[in-house]
């Protein structure tokens, strides 16, 4: 699993950081930062929840 985000689209809702705090955080501007680009399979479910809940469709998972 490879996680990427689109910083320009992010609206800083923090849904990802609440849903999957090991993978996502918010920087000083409140925008998304990825803590682990290749999280382990045990985090797959919560990362997919973050993708679904992100209001601006800024999170992408491949592989």
């Amino acid at each position: 699993m490879h996680v990427t985000t689109d910083h320009d689209r992010c609206v800083g809702s923090g849904q990802c950081a609440m849903q999957s705090p090991e993978v996502f955080d918010q920087d000083d501007d409140g925008l998304v930062v990825v803590l682990q680009e290749r999280p382990g399979a045990e985090l797959l479910e919560e990362v997919h929840r973050a993708v679904e809940l992100c209001p601006s469709q800024s999170i992408h998972v491949t592989g």
Binding site: V11, G12, G14, A17, M18, P21, Q26, D28, D29, G30, L31
Partner: peptide, 14 residues
């Protein structure tokens, strides 16, 4: 305007 306000409402700030 939203970008100016986002930092006030992050998960951490809350």
């Amino acid at each position: 305007q939203r970008r100016m306000l986002i930092p006030e409402f992050t998960a951490r700030r809350t």
